[in-house]
């Protein structure tokens, strides 16, 4: 395998993605990501130096909204699915020490 994924990398990606992996899962993830990257490295066979990255397939641009208030108070609906709520707000663990 050309791409060796270190424990640090898996640890780091775990922090970025907010995923906590068990030891087995980490080992599996290292293998999977390594082989995926090996496979993806196939793209390096292509010379793309002269090509612009294409994020949108169609040249659509300038899709705008006019600055007019349409939405009213929809709090009841917005909070309907909240796992925890209080005083019309979403409740989360304390964000400050």
């Amino acid at each position: 395998m050309a791409n060796i994924i270190s424990d640090e990398t898996i640890e780091y990606v775990g922090i970025l993605a907010k995923l906590e992996l068990s030891e087995e899962e980490k080992e599996q993830a290292k293998k999977d990501m390594g082989s995926m990257l090996d496979y993806i490295d196939k793209l390096n066979e292509l010379d793309t130096s002269a090509v612009e990255p294409m994020s949108h397939v169609f040249p659509v641009h300038n899709i705008f909204r006019e600055d007019v208030v349409v939405n009213g108070d929809d709090r009841e609906n917005i909070l309907k699915n909240a796992p925890e709520q209080k005083d019309g707000s979403f409740e989360v663990p304390k964000t400050v020490e």
Partner: peptide, 10 residues
């Protein structure tokens, strides 16, 4: 920040 319930409200 809600010190009473020790949580934060969004």
């Amino acid at each position: 920040h809600d010190d009473w319930d020790d949580c934060s409200l969004v």
